[in-house]
């Protein structure tokens, strides 16, 4: 991604770029497939369409089993939400994806390479934003980005355009010469995101990026992530704000006590595991009734019965799904490692 690309994306002209660079994929990335019973239909995706694939991924700290035989597939170009209570193992999973932690057993392939064996290959194609917001307070905003550009080996001649593009993308252009310690938390969060984007990675791993942000900053961050996804970047994100993830994510995985409970597109999981949904119907007479249906087919049958068979005048037909929050509460038990 060039600075021009960044600028055009920031202006809303960015188009989804292609993500399939099969020539960079390791042979080892193609020789295993995770268990698809919980990993969802994505488990069958070919290696070229997969950003992250974990198989029986396990991390143990002494007696503590932080991640327990995790099977996970993150499709390329997706916004993948990892959901779970505190202590579920999300950050540990992210640290293994980001080549910071070595798994105790099992395997993980990130952008076609094993982070344990080829961490630098993974780091070239992955941007990581940890859950803790650590920045260098005594630097200016542009110096901060330049430092990381240098750390990724980007030549000095490219820095100015890169800083311009990134700051425009994260809407910090007016703060270019401000000291980092003068920024608000939301701005620091966006600066951290700019830092993770400095080497134009194809995959972004964002651990609780919305943590501690006010509602406005959260909305801005969400819009920014949508823009980045529109640029073709795969985004793996964790958050406690499930409603946001539901709106933003194309795929989710729910973890608890180190184990994967469910994975796949949110709608699919809701249908598979969410159980019954309620439909509120308001009639022309002013009377409202609530019906319980199991799936889309039952919902369509209900509407047909009311309109055709019973000939009633329906003025409103609204599905009430508990969404991710209800699903989360249903399938997790509040177990903390």
């Amino acid at each position: 991604m060039s600075a021009t690309d960044l600028t055009s994306a920031a202006e809303g002209h960015g188009t989804g770029s292609s993500v399939g660079t099969t020539d960079l994929i390791d042979v080892e990335a193609t020789d295993f497939m995770p268990d698809d019973s919980v990993a969802g239909a994505a488990a069958d995706l070919p290696a070229a369409d997969v950003a992250v694939r974990a198989q029986q991924l396990t991390k143990r700290y002494g007696n503590l089993l932080a991640v327990n035989q995790l099977d996970l597939v993150v499709p390329r170009g997706s916004v993948f939400g990892l959901i779970g209570p505190n202590g579920a193992g999300k950050s540990t999973t992210f640290a293994m994806m980001a080549s910071l932690l070595r798994p105790t057993s099992g395997r993980i392939i990130v952008m076609g390479a094993d982070p344990s064996k080829k961490p630098r290959t993974v780091r070239r194609r992955m941007g990581y934003m940890p859950d803790n917001l650590g920045v260098y307070d005594n630097l200016r905003v542009d110096e901060y980005i330049e430092f990381f550009a240098a750390s990724y080996g980007i030549h000095r001649s490219e820095w100015t355009a890169l800083v311009d593009g990134l700051l425009e993308l994260v809407d910090l252009s007016v703060k270019r010469s401000a000291m980092v310690n003068s920024l608000s938390r939301g701005m620091k969060q966006r600066l951290s995101l700019a830092r993770a984007l400095v080497h134009d990675p194809e995959l972004l791993i964002l651990d609780e990026p919305a943590s501690g942000l006010d509602p406005r900053a959260r909305v801005e961050l969400r819009e920014l992530l949508k823009t980045l996804n529109g640029m073709g970047k795969t985004i793996v994100i964790s958050s406690h704000i499930l409603a946001e993830l539901e709106e933003m994510c194309t795929d989710i995985a729910i973890m608890e006590a180190g184990k994967l409970l469910a994975a796949g597109p949110p709608r699919e999981i809701l249908e598979r595991l969410g159980g019954a949904r309620t439909v509120k119907v308001r009639f022309a007479t002013g009377i409202s009734e609530t019906f319980t249906v199991a799936d889309d087919a039952e919902q369509a049958a209900l509407l047909r019965r009311l309109l055709v068979d019973e000939g009633r005048d329906v003025v409103e037909f609204v599905e009430h799904s508990g969404g991710l929050e209800q699903l989360f509460m249903t399938i997790t038990e509040g177990v903390v490692q």
Partner: peptide, 13 residues
Amino acid sequence: ERQTLLPLQVTLL
């Protein structure tokens, strides 16, 4: 302590 080591460790340094 200021939590800047992890971002540094995922660079190519």
